[in-house]
Amino acid sequence: MTHSGSCHCGRIRFEVDGDIGSALSCNCSICQRKGSLLWFVPRAALRLLAPESDTASYTFNKHVIQHRFCPTCGIHPYGEGQGPDGDAMAAVNIRCIEGIDLAAVPVTHFDGRSK
């Protein structure tokens, strides 16, 4: 299934392929503040419909995850990094995906604060 999403103002638009079986809620210093619900997919499953140059990026701690956000509205629709196997991954904020029932998506809580 292909899902469409965007930041609030629409400057950052994307499509992502896959079935949203669950999401992750992390309590690390940035995720807790953003309130993201993350769905991890191979990076190839995420297609930007706007130029990557329209995004801004923030890194912290080990500087291995590119937290992508819109410089206009400030919304964080996705992040990029590598999975445990070394493959490129995307962490899509499902709160930015159109037409899904967030209450129907099982959420796993991850203690990123302790990592």
Score class of each variant (00 low, 15 high):
13 R>Y: 07
38 L>P: 03
42 P>I: 03
16 V>P: 07
22 S>Q: 15
92 V>T: 06
111 D>S: 00
89 M>H: 04
63 H>N: 09
114 S>T: 02
40 F>I: 12
10 G>W: 07
7 C>W: 02
90 A>R: 06
8 H>E: 08
97 I>H: 07
94 I>W: 14
61 N>K: 14
53 S>A: 13
61 N>D: 15
1 M>D: 06
38 L>H: 15
83 G>P: 04
34 K>Q: 12
86 G>E: 10
13 R>W: 07
91 A>M: 12
110 F>Q: 09
75 I>T: 14
43 R>D: 08
49 L>K: 11
46 L>R: 08
26 C>P: 00
50 A>F: 02
70 C>M: 09
46 L>E: 07
64 V>M: 15
45 A>E: 10
64 V>H: 14
60 F>N: 12
62 K>L: 10
13 R>H: 05
72 T>I: 02
49 L>N: 06
100 I>G: 00
58 Y>I: 07
115 K>C: 10
78 Y>W: 13
115 K>N: 11
51 P>K: 04
54 D>A: 00
21 G>N: 04
44 A>F: 03
22 S>R: 15
68 R>T: 03
69 F>C: 12
7 C>P: 10
43 R>M: 04
9 C>A: 04
83 G>R: 14
59 T>Q: 15
21 G>P: 00
83 G>I: 02
80 E>T: 13
85 D>L: 12
55 T>M: 11
19 D>W: 00
84 P>K: 12
113 R>S: 11
3 H>G: 04
27 N>F: 03
16 V>T: 05
90 A>K: 06
52 E>R: 07
108 T>V: 11
42 P>H: 03
74 G>C: 05
62 K>H: 12
8 H>S: 04
16 V>F: 06
71 P>F: 08
84 P>C: 06
77 P>F: 13
2 T>H: 04
106 P>E: 02
26 C>E: 05
45 A>C: 05
45 A>D: 14
32 Q>W: 06
87 D>V: 05
18 G>A: 09
61 N>R: 14
114 S>Y: 06
53 S>L: 03
109 H>T: 15
68 R>V: 00
76 H>G: 02
25 S>A: 14
110 F>V: 15
104 A>D: 11
113 R>I: 08
65 I>N: 13
40 F>Q: 13
17 D>V: 12
88 A>T: 01
26 C>I: 02
54 D>I: 01
100 I>C: 05
46 L>V: 00
73 C>A: 11
56 A>L: 00
106 P>D: 01
45 A>R: 09
82 Q>S: 12
5 G>P: 05
37 L>I: 03
88 A>C: 00
104 A>V: 08
84 P>I: 09
54 D>K: 14
58 Y>S: 06
36 S>W: 13
32 Q>M: 08
60 F>K: 10
51 P>A: 10
99 G>L: 12
47 R>M: 05
19 D>E: 13
21 G>I: 08
90 A>Q: 07
20 I>S: 04
10 G>S: 10
115 K>G: 13
29 S>W: 04
33 R>I: 12
92 V>K: 08
86 G>Q: 09
61 N>F: 13
89 M>D: 06
14 F>M: 01
78 Y>I: 03
103 A>Y: 10
84 P>N: 10
84 P>S: 11
37 L>Y: 01
8 H>W: 11
72 T>S: 10
